[in-house]
Structure formats: C-alpha cells, structure tokens
C-alpha cells in the first residue's frame, strides 16, 4: 500500500525530468508496514487495520483527518495531544460514545462511528 509508494525525493533525484509527485492522499503513513491486519468497520466502511495499533493513528494513516464535529460551530476536529488529555480524537466505538481513540488499540470486529 503506502509502503509501496516510491520515495518522492528519490524519484525526483533519479528521474529529474519526471513530473513532481502528486500530493499523497493521506496525511500520515506507517513506518513499519508489517503487523497483522484485522477487519473492522469505520462509518459503515469495511477496513483492515493493524491489530493493537492506537485507533487514532490507524485512522490517520487511512485518510481520516477529522474525528468529530465541535459542539457550537460544528467544525471538523481531529486528534491533537495523542495522550488522552484533549479529547479531540473522540469517536463512538462499539456503541460507547466519547471514546478516546488515541488510547484505544485496534481490535478485530470493532465498529467505529466518527462524528464528522
């Protein structure tokens, strides 16, 4: 997947005439592409994510940038502190509301609903 993408710098160095690479579709990538993938559902979409990885990080590498909407302005908001303090990464997980996804490891069969 993402791991198979050529390093944009390398590509440009080796093929100076090649066009500049398009912006990558996700804001984040995993450093280690290994690890067991398990199926789960995010907003009704079937995904395979690395087991045990913090859910927030796994979602970020799959192009989910906003996790919920703010209460008054209804603006999209995403994770900020990644240590359980800010509660900006909350989602509904297996029916439980306001779960901090940065502290929730990915598990098989999870049903995640983002409020975005």
């Amino acid at each position: 997947m993402l791991a198979g993408r050529p390093n944009p710098r390398l590509t440009c160095a080796l093929y100076p005439s090649s066009p500049a690479p398009a912006a990558p579709p996700t804001r984040f990538r995993r450093l280690d592409p290994d690890g067991r993938l398990v199926p789960l559902t995010v907003d009704g979409q079937a995904l395979e994510l690395p087991e045990g990885m913090p859910l927030a990080a796994a979602l970020l590498t799959h192009g989910f940038d906003a996790f919920h909407r703010s209460v008054r302005r209804a603006e999209p908001r995403g994770p900020w502190c990644l240590m359980g303090t800010c509660l900006q990464c909350i989602a509904t997980v297996d029916g439980r509301p306001q779960v901090r996804t940065c502290r929730t490891p990915v598990a098989a069969g999870m049903v995640v609903t983002l409020g975005s």
Partner: peptide, 15 residues
C-alpha cells in the same frame, strides 16, 4: 508532543 507520540507510540509519521 502529540506528533512525537504518533512517531514513538504508533510508528506513524506525517507524509
């Protein structure tokens, strides 16, 4: 610190 935790704790880095 959050970005560093993504790196250290989840092996996840910005593209």
């Amino acid at each position: 610190g959050g970005l560093q935790l993504l790196l250290k704790g989840a092996g996840t880095v910005p593209t």
